[in-house]
Design a protein around this nucleic acid. Sequence first.
DNA 1: GATCGTTTAAAACAGTTGTTTGAATTCACT
DNA 2: AGTGAATTCAAACAACTGTTTTAAACGATC
Lengths: 230, 230
Amino acid sequence: MSESQCQTELDTRTRLLEAAGPVFAARGYDRATVREICTSAGVNIASVGYHFGDKLGLYRELIRETREARERQFPTPNTAGGDPAVTLARIVRTLMSRILSADHSGWESQLFMREMQSPTPVFEDIVEQYFRPIYERLVQTIAALIELEQQTDTPTDTATKTPDHVVEHLALTVIGACVHHKVGAGAIEILISPERRKNHFDIDSLSRHITAVTLAAVRSNDVTRPAIQP
Amino acid sequence: MSESQCQTELDTRTRLLEAAGPVFAARGYDRATVREICTSAGVNIASVGYHFGDKLGLYRELIRETREARERQFPTPNTAGGDPAVTLARIVRTLMSRILSADHSGWESQLFMREMQSPTPVFEDIVEQYFRPIYERLVQTIAALIELEQQTDTPTDTATKTPDHVVEHLALTVIGACVHHKVGAGAIEILISPERRKNHFDIDSLSRHITAVTLAAVRSNDVTRPAIQP
DNA sequence: GATCGTTTAAAACAGTTGTTTGAATTCACT
DNA sequence: AGTGAATTCAAACAACTGTTTTAAACGATC
């Protein structure tokens, strides 16, 4: 094994992985062809079979490495003791960064978005190892926020405790609001003017907005104390 | 042309359209094969070419008819004069119904979701004719809500007017929260317990939750009066 | 320098895809 | 029944897919 070259002439295996990312993200697992990947990587078609067994093997490895890189770059905040409002802001920003941050060209998150609608055999791993940790931290944080809010309430209001499913709804609302800016990017591109998108649809603005909405919801009894059918 | 039979023996054209819906929704445009559609419809493979020109022609017609049916069944609320809060609730419910209502088996909205991530030549039409109307009504309603809220504020608070992009952020947050329950259904199925999903993840509960969150956000100055960088 | 395991190369394979062909069939109308 | 257009059918087409094959090139070790 040669480990001396580090400039442009890399390992065939590595070149395959690097070329596979954009292609799988752009076309999806099925539409992506090993021929296009190999051409883009400048390697022979048979290399996929040799190094990864088959197309799915290459895809599995790509997903694994991408997820690990994404987690390293935007780790799930673990500020357990601090102010829940600050933790919420951090979680939302982490979510938005993982989704919108375009280090290479935004294909990383596109991979995971495609798994949501066209799941492959790796989907369950992605949810358990990538989605669940930050989701559960979000649930904990929102629960802490609600509890904090209700402690400062006047005692007469504390008749009914906020049920668990409301916390889950809130967490999923947050995630949905974040994810939508990637999933619905094509529609947003048509619905929102380019100038508006350029000025106000960055990670920072969107994170702050979603955090503010969530905090407002947590402080509203109409959300945390759901009424019986009106 | 025969128009006498209306029971099980329908027009070949109609049978093709009816069979195409579930297949295109389940597999996506590319993965769906005309062979599977024709087998499911019980017609010859060449019928697609004869009646619709080609695969894309069949798909175009399916999208058109599905969109029109969906708009008929869940029309965009046009209660212009009424209480904006009521209008908001109606819009959210319409959105959730269009997305989650499973008349046949939920494939109708799946079609549009797939267009968001793997757009075909019909995507722009869908956005302009299906998404934009209800989106703009949502924007108008939220703007009306904010104005109504700020009228009742103490005059000292009305220093800064809510900028337009905040209204757009709010509208997209609402849409994202709704859409996520379809796009992220696969992940939600893993993250949320089946019992919880069965009891609290229906159209009614989710619509009320999202409406309440939006109303809370509209009433929060932290949302409608975005601060300069902290 | 010969040798053996590792890696790459071009070509072919078997399967599936959307589409087309040309004959057979159906159908309304005389 | 006969006619002519509309429709359906089985079969084949050309293009593309993932994968395999077989031989060639490489690289370290003796």
